[in-house]
């Protein structure tokens, strides 16, 4: 459909999604608990399906956010050069927003099913879940915002960049917000702080991962645009790295600290939640190292319009980000035990 062929690296995006699913499965294995005798267990399709759908939801969200940020990263001073890339970006953003909305609705059905093991799910039961459980309302809001993001992208596919990129980016970031509110964050006296910290964590992680994915997949073959966008992204990524690290450590420590059974540092290694926190911390350290490599070794060559091995390095970075997202999905649901 696009008249100008642009070289892209869609395989890199696949790396992100696959590693996210791997992360979920590893996380599930780490947190696997013995079934309690006498209690009906949710069906396998629910137990495994729910985290997988949640990670697909996250990946669709990250993709949408990244693609909506892309016009801001490229800037508006080279419309001729940027337009062929942005045409594709808008189209994919539209589709990923749609996947996002549908994944939220599927997650809603699966969470309803999780609560009623051994039973079929009726529309009334889903509605009942939305009525009684905060997470149900949150998923409904996510679906609504994702559909709004879809509508904006659809509009921009038709009329181009006259739809403000800021608006699209803001709507997509906004749609990230409802879910963390219903996650773990505790209701002890620092509750409001943990809530805000959690939201910042999610938004930064999404902007960081999505931005990197969008820049590498769509711009890596275009040296001029890359030389424009990557330094901007690099600044954004540095901010995101710092925010993700601070908020992540803070929230993990709070969640472990309020555990009434085990002291903080013991809980870190002795609880399944603690192990996941350590795994994510490991991911973060690796990401910081890779980010530093790209920032100080590759970026100077890229701004000088020379070819680099950016795709390979960024691919590794995205794979680790995917793992971290997979762990995160399990982490938000894992009890501290």
């Amino acid at each position: 459909m696009t008249t100008t062929r642009t070289t892209t690296y869609p395989g890199i995006a696949a790396v992100l999604v696959v590693s996210a699913i791997v992360g979920v499965l590893v996380g599930l294995a780490v947190t696997a608990a013995e079934p309690v005798p006498g209690l009906p267990e949710p069906a396998v399709v629910v137990r495994v399906g729910l985290p997988v759908v949640r990670v697909l939801l996250d990946m669709a969200a990250v993709t949408t956010v990244g693609l909506c940020l892309l016009p801001l990263l490229i800037g508006f001073d080279r419309p001729k050069l940027a337009e062929p890339v942005l045409v594709g970006a808008r189209r994919v953003a539209m589709l990923s927003a749609l996947v996002w909305a549908v994944a939220a609705l599927v997650a809603l059905v699966l969470q309803t099913a999780e609560l009623r093991p051994g039973k079929d799910v009726s529309a009334a039961a889903v509605w009942d879940y939305v009525g009684t459980v905060g997470a149900g309302k949150a998923l409904l809001f996510v679906a609504a915002f994702a559909l709004l993001s879809f509508a904006l992208s659809l509009w921009s596919v038709r009329v181009g960049e006259s739809v403000p990129a800021e608006l699209r980016a803001a709507v997509s970031l906004f749609a990230l917000l409802p879910l963390p509110v219903t996650g773990h964050a505790t209701n002890w006296r620092w509750h409001d702080l943990t809530m805000i910290s959690m939201e910042l964590h999610v938004m930064s992680a999404a902007a960081w991962t999505g931005g990197l994915g969008a820049v590498v997949v769509l711009l890596a073959a275009n040296r001029t645009l890359l030389a424009h966008a990557l330094p901007r992204f690099s600044k954004l990524a540095t901010i995101c790295l710092v925010v993700v690290a601070l908020t992540g450590v803070f929230n993990g420590a709070v969640e472990l600290a309020v555990n009434p059974h085990t002291p903080l540092f013991e809980a870190l290694v002795s609880t399944r939640y603690g192990v996941l926190v350590l795994l994510k911390l490991g991911c973060l350290v690796a990401l910081a190292a890779l980010g530093a490599k790209i920032r100080w070794r590759l970026l100077p060559a890229i701004t000088a319009h020379r070819g680099t091995a950016l795709v390979a390095w960024a691919g590794v970075e995205l794979a680790i980000m995917g793992l971290a997202f997979g762990f995160a999905v399990v982490l938000t649901r894992a009890p501290v035990s």
């Binding site: 803001a170 509110v181 996650g183 209701n187 805000i196 939201e199 902007a207 954004l236 009890p335």
Partner: peptide, 22 residues
């Protein structure tokens, strides 16, 4: 882009929901 982030962040804070926990 940062302005968009900031708007979203402010919106979050004003939206921060009821205390929910595990």
């Amino acid at each position: 882009g940062l302005a968009a982030l900031a708007v979203a962040a402010v919106a979050t804070i004003s939206l921060a929901g009821p205390a929910l926990a595990h």
